[in-house]
Computed example of a mutant assay.
Amino acid sequence: MNKQVLEFKNVWKTYHMGDGLVNALAGLDLSLDEGSFTAVMGPSGSGKSTFLHVAGILDEPTMGVFRINGKETINLSMKEQARLRRNEIGFIFQRFNLLSQLTSLENVMLPMINKDLEKAKEILDKMGLEDKHHKRPTQLSGGELQRVAIARALINDPSIILADEPTGELDTANADSIMKILQDLNHNNGVSIVVVTHNPASASFADEIIHMSDGKIVNMDSK
């Protein structure tokens, strides 16, 4: 039996909107195996972002059970949740979220508890950024910025990477390059990947595509 890296069991997430309630997630049931590569698609308001926030332990379900690598997060303290998030999850964002005053190397090392300069350099080199260690974000192209962001996501050896529209700011060539990096990390290093995207071309790199609507999964396509 495959180990499940993410488990959602009847997960609801309800927000107060004015005088009413909105169910961003409405009884979501989903299990993703270790080493899987999954794309999540759907229109705005379908629940994709809320799904990612719960998966990244950035938000808690209103009802239901969520587990990451078998650990139920709602019973953990804030400190334990932060430790789990730091050790198990790498985040990649559409707008890169790099600190402009830091170099590429410094941005990559930011999440590290024990600062390991050589490890940070090695990961940047694997991203094809051998000559960009000391460049700041304003000196890098969009594709280079996202490679730095991927290196930062990998620095603590996460078991899963959660990517929120990682190609949304990139042209087609750079978008394909970034998705190939994620695909290689999945195939060669066994990192579980979840990508939220509006782009069918980016989604095509995944082994499974989940379609969401109204906080639920309405369709799943597997290769």
Rank of each mutant, 00 (worst) to 15 (best):
A82T: 11
A206E: 04
M127A: 10
A153I: 06
V65T: 15
K9W: 00
N69W: 06
L98G: 05
M127Y: 08
A149F: 04
L140E: 01
Q4V: 11
L52P: 04
N219I: 01
L105K: 13
L105T: 06
I89C: 04
T50H: 12
S31W: 00
A26G: 00
L154G: 02
S49C: 07
L76A: 06
D59R: 03
L76E: 02
F66G: 03
E165K: 12
A24I: 12
L110M: 15
L145S: 01
N186R: 10
A55K: 09
H16Y: 03
A173F: 08
G56M: 01
M127K: 11
S213C: 05
M127S: 07
S49R: 12
V196L: 13
F8H: 04
G70Q: 12
D19Y: 01
Q139G: 00
S49P: 02
G143F: 07
S100L: 06
V148P: 01
M41G: 01
N97F: 14
K216T: 13
A203L: 07
A201W: 00
E165M: 08
A26T: 12
N2L: 05
R85I: 11
K180Q: 14
M112L: 05
D184L: 01
H133W: 15
F51S: 09
A82Q: 12
Q4G: 00
F37L: 09
A175T: 09
N189R: 13
P43N: 11
M212E: 07
E72T: 12
R147F: 04
M109S: 04
K9I: 06
V65Q: 14
S159E: 09
A26F: 07
E80H: 01
V54W: 03
E165C: 06
L140R: 10
W12I: 03
D19E: 11
A120H: 06
D29F: 04
G215P: 13
D116V: 03
L99T: 05
S36R: 10
P61L: 13
M17A: 10
D164C: 09
N114C: 00
M220Y: 01
A55P: 03
R67Y: 02
K121G: 04
M63E: 15
I193N: 06
D29N: 15
G42W: 03
I92S: 09
T138V: 09
K79A: 09
S177M: 13
G47P: 05
T172C: 05
I160C: 02
G190N: 08
N174D: 12
Q101G: 00
N2K: 12
R95I: 01
K216M: 14
N23T: 05
A153L: 10
L84S: 12
K115W: 07
T197Q: 13
